[in-house]
Design a protein around this nucleic acid. Structure first.
Length: 428
RNA sequence: GGAGAGAUGGCAGAGUGGUCGAAUGCACCGGUCUUGAAAACCGGCAUGGGUUUAUAGCCCAUCUAGGGUUCAAAUCCCUAUCUCUCCGCCA
């Protein structure tokens, strides 16, 4: 959420900056609502103040043993006016909030202008895509041949966009998550967390999934009262970041760095026909998430550091990747600046997203009132929140299967993963 | 599933209808004292919002949340959520 004061004082400038990311802000509508809000709120508060003083004087009169009947008659109609004004104001504030909650974050000034993913800027490339001297298979064929990937079984259990993994593939999937968690906790200073996979609407509002992207979420429909209104997390960013919702932490505790391995659930509404085959786009996938909360002046550096932590995973697994700086038009709703990491997929002959690392600045923090106490002023200030995948486990599995495949259909296990695979060097 | 108790500021804990945004203690910040520290003493110390050039002032809201009663609610009523105790069940 943008700062309400900034929004109303710099309405045109805000609209201009949002245009860069393809968002059309209806400034005329907002200005009109704002004008009404101002007069109505001022007059409502004025009425409230009047009633407060009169009620107070009734109390004082009563204490002195005076007759309060005439005072009571006078305050009666004031109450009615106040009720009406309050009701009207509540509706208006609600309307305005709905609009403001649906406005995306402002892009940082160093984010390239652009319309879509074609305008993203490549920052660096790491590793060399391997040259194959045999006809390569995609991860589905490799996995199915090993009896380790079974889409048919998943269709029976749940439907399309789910998968059943077995044997070495299932183990590698598990090992990958362990490896990533160990790396981030032992080498990168993150605190491991185990979090709920079902969260309430307040949490989803805090990180920006609601109210605008409800259709991307899986909603629960419990048969009894218990658990009503809970939704499945689309990413661990939601529970991890919301740990700080309505909290004020000491400046000395910053930065706060959390990591968690969780499944993520996405309805993928509107992506019908995209990546139908394989593990790339699933309703349920595992991810190791990185979340950091920092002082405002530290968030630029924190984004570089966080992205570096995700890159480290790819480097240790020896997977070729490139780092993209997203343009204004391709960024997510809450992001001020985003790096995508894209891993090389031989079967698709291109780089595909495997991590997305964003600085949301105070956009999420304002929604959830996540703050720290400034040591100098002793006043609470909004934190900056950052999040990134470190990495998407399913897609990492895909990348390993495809990049490390051999002509006989077996796959070489990356060195760093072998301790998590009982020492296996090759799976087949 | 059944029975009961509770939810107040960073924490602890008063407050049962009227100058209560809320006593007191702890913590924290500043000062006096001290060679320095501690102790003692003095002072300060909630958050959100509105108005405004202003984190000057003024105003509104907030005692888990949402409704209700009343001129007036931390205080009375209803509902929800959460916590605790006991019984049952259970990984």
């Amino acid at each position: 959420m943008l700062d309400a004061k900034y929004l109303r004082n710099e309405l045109e400038e805000t609209a201009q900056r949002l245009e860069a990311r393809g968002f059309a802000l209806d400034t005329a509508q907002l200005a009109a609502l704002e004008e009404r809000r101002k007069t109505l709120q001022v007059s409502t508060q004025e009425l409230q103040a009047q009633r407060n003083t009169r009620s107070k004087s009734i109390g004082q009169a009563k204490a002195r043993g005076e007759d309060i009947a005439p005072l009571l008659a006078h305050v009666g109609e004031l109450g009615e006016q106040l009720e009406a004004a309050k009701a009207e104001l509540a509706i208006l504030l609600n309307d305005i909030e709905l609009i403001v909650m649906g406005i995306p974050n402002l892009p940082d000034s160093d984010v390239p202008q652009g319309k879509d993913e074609d305008d993203n800027v490549e920052v660096l490339r790491w590793g060399q895509p391997r040259q194959f001297d045999f006809v390569i298979k995609d991860h589905t064929d490799i996995g199915e041949a090993m009896g380790g990937i079974d889409f048919g079984a998943a269709v029976k259990l749940s439907g399309s966009r789910f998968v059943v993994l077995k044997k070495h593939i299932a183990r590698m999937h598990r090992g990958l998550a362990q490896f990533m968690l160990d790396l981030h906790t032992e080498e990168h200073g993150y605190t491991e967390a185990y979090v709920p996979y079902l969260v309430n609407a307040d949490s989803l509002r805090g990180t920006g999934q609601l109210p605008k992207f409800s259709e991307d979420l899986f909603h629960t429909n419990p048969a009894n009262e218990e658990g009503v209104g809970l939704m499945l997390i689309p990413t661990a960013e939601v529970p991890l970041t919301n740990l700080m919702r309505d909290e004020i932490v000491d400046e000395a505790e910053l930065p706060i760095k959390y990591t968690a391995h969780t499944p993520c659930f996405r309805s993928e509404a509107g992506s019908y026909g995209r990546d139908i085959k394989g593990l790339i786009r699933q309703h349920q996938f595992d991810k190791v998430e990185l979340v950091t909360l920092v002082k405002p002046q530290d968030s630029n550096d924190a984004l570089e550091e966080l992205t570096g932590c995700a890159e480290k995973v790819l480097q240790l697994l020896e997977l070729p990747y490139r780092k993209m700086l997203l343009c204004t038009g391709d960024m997510g709703f809450t992001a001020a600046k985003t790096y995508d990491l894209e891993v090389w997929l031989p079967s698709q002959d291109c780089y595909r997203e495997i991590s997305s690392c964003s600085n949301t600045r105070d956009f999420q923090a304002r929604r959830m009132q996540a703050r720290f106490r400034n040591k100098e002023t002793n006043k609470p200030e909004l934190l900056h929140t950052l999040n990134g995948s470190g990495l998407a486990v399913g897609r990492t599995l895909v990348a390993i299967l495809e990049n490390n495949q051999q002509s006989d259909g077996s796959v070489i296990v990356p060195e760093v993963l072998r301790p998590y695979m009982g020492g296996l060097a090759i799976i087949s």
